[in-house]
Design a protein around this nucleic acid. Structure first.
Lengths: 295, 295
DNA sequence: GTCAGCCCATATATTTTCGGTATGCCAATG
DNA sequence: CATTGGCATACCGAAAATATATGGGCTGAC
């Protein structure tokens, strides 16, 4: 079965004439006549009744016509859908993000995306840092919102903003009465730490900050996520040094205070596979920049 | 768009490899590779990610694949449907019949047809003689059950049985006490006549019968259908000479009596357009013969 | 009745496209 | 570093599609 034959068939059926159909198809009449007869040979039955005033579908022809039109439309639609996906007008983008950014970014990011790419299905997944990396690599997420960026040769990174580091503590802590906490006050206090520097440069910003101010904080616990860190802070296990936006997801009873004399910040980045060329990624990046930069 | 390309595309997508797909398609690998690239050029976007271990659909490719499979199935289904219709395994047959045959024939004909051609849609239309002819000619009915046959150069006829002529009268008529009515008793009595001989040879059987027996019956009324004839008989307008099977559709109060010494009968025929070659017509004819002949 | 016109079918030539073979290129692997 | 697996490219012969020219049947007009 050849789609061209079906197209010709439909044209002849609609024109009820080989000659008229040939004209509409911008071709000569004899080859069209030949193609129709070949189609009839392939089906094994006449599809048209030849009269002296044109052609007319037989019952078998009507049965074929009903499906042929749909098949043509479906094939055309398939090509169009592929083009739309390739152009980023349709399709889906799966977005991995971290808990700490959810409340700060998503409420503004989602409407922005809906405006830019209305035909695109959006998927969101809150993922830990290591899962974000794994799922970027296996393509089960298209882009990841990270803080800080993922460091991997296959993964491309674009910085879209930064978040100052702040001290998170229980409201009952005496330090919470200060407007800004001097670094020196942290010395010796227990720290809730995020993953090790070599796995996640996030905590390296914190260790660099402490080292520069010659502050030593014993590590009370290590946790995987910002969320866990805040739970432990609330439980009184210690202090955490977190990006400012985490405040928006913090439970009652935790307060954030700036660190006096410390302008350290941590980058917010969009990450994606180097070999993903979907235009949706560019669009997503633009939206993320617009939303994150002013924070 | 060419269906072959789509078929190749689906094969490669399923095999996730040009080489494997080529093997399954019984062709060499290079031409398949060429066709895939042509398809990609036509779509205007890559459909596969080429890795070192085969090929993998891009998002655009997935969008196309979803429709391509359906389009292929639909095209194949269309051809199969056309074949089935041409072979008489599917489709529809529209059957025009006359009132007088409805009760006598349809209850046995319909199950017979359902058994012979279970996949075929049956349409029934009770039609007057002239309408049957017109609708055969414009193909809005496929076959007609007639009594007697239609006489027209475009229409082919097959006799499938015969019905003896009987006298229909009100039960209160004195003649109804006779087991069989001698022809001579009809002389001078009013006749409810069906359409003129030149339009419908049905009544010519009646006039021939009367002429042969030298019986004269004044025409009380002319009616279009057997049904009307019986209504007038019941109303006491006169007598009618009708095929025996009309008895099954007769209202209460009418009796049928054989005519002594008159073996005249009227043919039951199946009629169809000479240029209709559907195998359904042959099948219908067989069923009608089986059902009508023993009557 | 004949003649012109319309429409589809057939025949032949040309062009396009397809499929096969040979070969190249790249990456992963031992 | 050679080998292997997999896709891409090059080129050639074959098949199929298209165009032009022509034939033949039916219709309708003069």
């Amino acid at each position: 079965m050849d789609l061209r034959r079906l197209r010709y068939f439909v044209a002849v059926a609609e024109a009820r004439s080989v000659g008229k159909a040939a004209e509409r198809l911008r071709m000569a009449q004899p080859p069209l006549s030949v193609q129709i007869r070949k189609l009839e040979a392939e089906v094994g039955a006449p599809l048209f009744r030849r009269g002296t005033r044109g052609m007319d579908l037989t019952e078998a022809g009507q049965a074929l016509l009903a499906r042929a039109g749909e098949a043509l439309a479906l094939a055309a639609d398939g090509v169009e859908a592929a083009r739309a996906v390739a152009a980023g007008r349709r399709g889906r983008i799966s977005i991995g993000y971290m808990f700490a950014l959810a409340n700060a970014v998503l409420p503004r990011l989602i409407p922005e995306l809906r405006r830019s790419i209305p035909g695109v299905e959006l998927h969101f997944a809150e993922l830990s840092a290591s899962t974000r990396e794994a799922r970027l690599l296996d393509r089960s997420v298209t882009v990841a919102l990270c803080m800080p960026a993922i460091n991997h040769p296959e993964i491309q990174v674009a910085r879209v903003g930064a978040q100052p580091l702040m001290l998170a503590m229980p409201i009952r802590s005496p330090l919470s009465r200060l407007g800004a906490v001097p670094m020196a006050k942290l010395h010796g206090r227990p720290l809730i730490a995020l993953p090790r520097p070599e796995q996640d440069p996030a905590s390296s910003a914190v260790t660099a900050l402490l080292r520069r101010h010659q502050v030593v904080m014993p590590i009370a616990s290590r946790v995987e996520t910002v969320h866990s860190a805040m739970s432990l802070v609330l439980a009184g296990e210690g202090f955490a040094i977190l990006p400012a936006c985490a405040k928006l997801g913090a439970p009652q009873g935790i307060v954030f205070r700036p660190l006096r004399d410390a302008t350290d910040s941590i980058d917010v980045a969009v990450c994606w596979r180097r070999d993903s060329h979907s235009p949706l990624i560019r669009t997503f990046l633009k939206c993320a920049e617009k939303v994150v930069a002013p924070m």
